[in-house]
Structures are given as C-alpha cells and as structure tokens.
Design a protein around this nucleic acid. Structure first.
Lengths: 212, 212
DNA sequence: AATTTCACCGATAGTACTATCGGTGAAACT
DNA sequence: AGTTTCACCGATAGTACTATCGGTGAAATT
C-alpha cells in the first residue's frame, strides 16, 4: 500500500471528508437521533473534541451534509443524463425521463432515504436540502411535460401540471425505494409502470385541454 | 361550566388521553427529537414524574401513539368509506377509491406527516405504525384493482399490480400533503389527476395482459 | 536550526433529558 | 370513622451528549 506523504491541509481535508462520509452513513443507518459528534468522530478515527476543528457545531455539519448531498445528487443526475443522451429513438428518450431519476437514486439510495425523512420533519436542519432535492426532481418531470408540448396558460392548467409532476415524482420515489429494498429487482419494470401512469395523465390532459 | 365529579379511574383515563393528545401534537409540530417527557407532561398539565404513572417509559408512549394513530386512521377511513357507499354511479365509485384516502388524510393530516417521517427512519419506534399504515393504503388500492378485474396469476403480474398500487398510493399521499399545505385547494382536482394516472396504468395492463 | 502554526488529544464544565423514590392528600373501600 | 389505595408531586440520581480549554508534537515557515 502507498504511504501517506500528505501536506497538512491535504490531511485536514481528508479528515473532513471522512467525517462527512461517516456522518452520511450514520444518518442513513440510525437516523438523525443517532447522529452524535461522538459517533461521527469515532467513525472517522479522531477524538470527539477534534470534531470541532472541522465544524463550528453540529448544525454546521448538517449544513455541510446538505451541501454534499445536493452535490452528489446533481452529479448522479448529470451522469445518468449523460448516459441517456446516447439513447437512439424518441420512445427511449421518454423512458429516460423516468430511468434517469431511478438510476440516480439507485446510485445513492441513502440520499433519498435521508431526504424523505427530513422532508416532513419540522425539526430537521436538513429540511432545506430535502425541499431543494424534491424541487429538482419535480423540475425534471415538469421539463419533460413542457418538452412534450404541455404548457399552462391559466391557473387551473398550471395546478394540473404541477400535480402531475408531483404525483409522478412521488411514484418514482416509491418505486425507487422498492427497487433499493429488492422488491422490484428490474428497473425497466418500474420504468414501464411510470410510463403507463404518465401516459394516463397525458391522455387526460389532451382530452380536457381545449374542451371544458 | 360544568364541574368535574369524576371517579378516580375516569380522571386517570382523562389524563392519559390528554397525554396522548399532547404527544401527537408535539410530535407533529416538533418531530420526534422534540418529543420529551417534560414537554408532554407539561402540555397535559401534570408533573414530569407523573408521566410514569401512565406509561412505563417513553417507548411505551410511542407504542400507544402508534395504536391510537392507527385507530384514528381506521376510523377516518371507515367513515369516509361509509359516506362513499352512497355513490350512485360506477364512475363515482371509482373516484371514491381516491377520494376516500384523501378525505381520511385531510381529517388527520398529522398522522400522515408522522407516518411519512417514521417510514424511513430506522431509529423510530413508530416504524411499525408507519409500515402498517402504508400497507392499509396499499391494500385499499389493491382491492380496487381487484374489483376492476385485475388479478395476478404469475410473478410478473403480481409485481406489476403491486408497483401500480404503491405508485398510486405514493401519488395520493403527495397530493394529500399538497392539499393540506394549501397548494391544491380542491380535492376534486386531485382526484381527477389520480384517476387519470390510474387509467394509464389500467390501459397498459389491458394492452399487455394477454399478449407478450 | 529556531520558531511558528495547527490538527489533534484528554479532561471536563454545562445542558437536557430519563427514570426512580419517598411523601401527600383525597378518593375508595371496610 | 378508620384504613387502604393511588394519582400526583418535588427532588434527585444517572445518562448521554455538546462544546470548550490547555497541552502536545509534527509540519510548515523563517
């Protein structure tokens, strides 16, 4: 194994990353209640008091976790999108709309779990992260709807599109969790279901767009 | 105001219900982290130490909250179903499948919030409550699919129906939260969206049922 | 080579909460 | 009327965690 001839700031940065990594794992496995400076520091291999060399306080760590989580998620989405761009047909491209988030989530399941938990917890400092993440997914689906020519020119239609994007997003998350937990081994099967649900919404939009 | 000529056990029962009521409110407003015996007891108007007259420990309270929450939810679902039984047409009856959970949730929004939070929190003693509640909703939707003649005779179809029920359920919860938060003021509009999503899934099932 | 910087350490003060204990008075029982 | 029961109380021991502080040695700087 290679030695560690690190400069001081490199070593500090490494420790900081170890702390964040450990914190994310503990957060995922034990929840926010189990996230203590004692456990995080120990898991990162330093003394509890040294935690404060890297973070002002626990709140500061949570903030960093939100940033890091968002960063990872955007990276995963970008990567999934990059792979999808090689998709040949237009049909495939529509399937991609659903495959991209599923792939991104599968890459970092802990982020979805943490997000879903924080989303409805008024006491969680990660709520901002959860809200932003949810918005990113919703925008993703809203962009898909817009690309298919479904736009809103009044309040009612705007609400409809938002509800559809939110519903599809929630279904995507639920199936992603099921996939992570092993109940739905095949991502393509989940994509099938999401495409079917989505088509129902689109058909309804078309049927009611010009009429009443 | 009426006096309180209560027997001892009546008074104790009243206090116990006050504790559960206070605990549910604190849980909803401040999350599990904010739920302490100090706050619950104070909110119920008794001393912190008297909390232990009614519950063995905090765990015991959480267990009681799960029971109480499940009870309230089942009552709300039953009541909503009772009202729905007066539905005239078959179309209305199908809409009711989605209106019932939405109504039930609107009646006790705190229970959904608590459930969604606990569902993915490994440290939460309320996880069982969350799992059971989620199952109750899923069964509700699965029963609807069965009533429409969609049954599974192989593994793949079983998975499909489960994924659809789970997806619809997740969408229902998401729209219910949106309704509670005021973004979707009209329940009927949410029902429209859910019906549309559902129809897409049913159409897909029909199209692929006998073929490939 | 001498000096400074600083990531890390152990010890510990402070805080918040859980759970127990002995005491009290009014309700319930005899 | 006398006795027992028990819901509730204040006090407090015990536990877990946060955050601070002075000290240390090796890296960085001079």
């Amino acid at each position: 194994m290679t030695n560690t001839p690190l400069t001081r700031s490199e070593a500090k940065d490494l420790t900081r990353r170890r702390l964040i990594r450990a914190a994310l794992e503990i957060l995922d496995k034990e929840g926010e209640a189990g996230l203590t400076t004692v456990k995080v520091a120990k898991a990162a291999g330093i003394a509890q008091s040294s935690f404060y060399v890297h973070f002002k306080d626990k709140q500061d760590l949570l903030r960093a976790l939100g940033d890091e989580g968002g960063e990872r998620l955007r990276r995963a989405m970008r990567e999934a999108r990059r792979q999808a761009r090689e998709a040949p047909t237009e049909l495939e491209s529509h399937r991609d709309t659903f495959r991209i988030p599923l792939d991104a989530i599968s890459r970092h399941p802990e982020l979805l779990r943490i997000q879903l938990r924080a989303r409805h917890d008024p006491s969680s400092p990660l709520r901002e992260f959860a809200t932003e993440t949810a918005k990113a997914y919703r925008d993703h689906h809203a962009a898909d709807l817009a690309a298919l020519g479904y736009t809103a020119d009044n309040e009612r239609d705007r609400r409809r599109l938002e509800m559809i994007a939110e519903g599809i997003n929630a279904a995507t998350n639920a199936l992603a969790i099921g996939h992570i937990e092993g109940r739905y081994p095949e991502i393509e099967e989940a994509v099938d279901v999401l495409v079917a649900l989505s088509r129902g919404a689109l058909r309804w939009l078309r049927a009611t767009q010009t009429g009443s």
